[in-house]
Amino acid sequence: MKGSKLIRISNRFAKYMFELRRNITVVRGDSGTGKTTLFNMVADYTRNKEQSGVNISAPCPCVALTDVNWEAQLRDIHESVVFIDEDSNHNYLSSKDFARAVQNSDNYYVLITRENLHDLPYSVEEIYEIKKSGKYHLFRNIYNSQFDNGYLHDEQPTQPFNVIVTEDAKSGFQFFQAVFEDNETVCIPAGANSNIHSVIRKDPEGKTVVIADGAAFGSEIDRVLKLEKSGFRICLYLPESFEWIILRSGLIDGVEDILASPSEYIESQKYLSWERYFTALLTEQTQDGYLAYRKAKLNENYLNDNEVGAILSVLPEVIRRKRKTI
């Protein structure tokens, strides 16, 4: 399934309106905000359709996963928005079986849970809380930043950083290492998203910049940001992915429409999360050219002055200004 989905759900007590842009949306936040009420309304509709008295306006079916045998129920659901509430399920949301089911699915999912779900790649932009005013309930991003080119969190922007952590040692790491690593700054590949918090904890004195794929960092952002409560200084920069930065830099022609509304182009069954699509897109758009992109090993042409300048222009100033002088 692809495309954004504007959904309105209402009954005599409550009205919900929200837009889903990706295959996985997570809803959490304070108790008493109406999360389970939303799920119960969709569940009533799933059982009784229009005779439930619940009104649903959506471009595709909305279904609540209510069966104990969730795998059997899910097998029969296609091209739908599937709602799951941790309070109503049987504790399978964090299972590898559920992650596998989502991976092979043509549905979108609204997961009402506070668990981090480390086996699911979901975006920091699709984590919401519910804000209500009387009967009216709206989704609001929990992680919001004013920066245009990804999510940026830096509570101490004037303090220089001395560590850059990336998820792995592939092209993105190789680029940042070539451009930033010097006597003052070290670049470290964490090996996996789930190791990033461990790398941060190894440097309690300095300041760490985390550059990771925002498209798949949803399961990590809470515990990484909470390290600030323990005194760790963190700048968290989460573009969709390194490939998205290159596509966004202006070096690649013909991708403007896609970047303006990725939802309309990304088939969720083929690309579980957006960074996989952007890797495929960049690889395809540059094949046989001088910027031919390979994820495993950075094409050295990306380290030419012009290319470095274009790529850095996408990054926030707080990172960009630390570029080493050659």
């Binding site: 981090n116 918090h197 461990s198 809470d222 390290l227 409560k229 323990s230």
Partner: peptide, 13 residues
């Protein structure tokens, strides 16, 4: 406090 709790719990969530 939360600083201490975070460091003790972060590996398990």
């Amino acid at each position: 406090n939360m600083a201490e709790l975070t460091l003790q719990a972060v590996d398990f969530v």
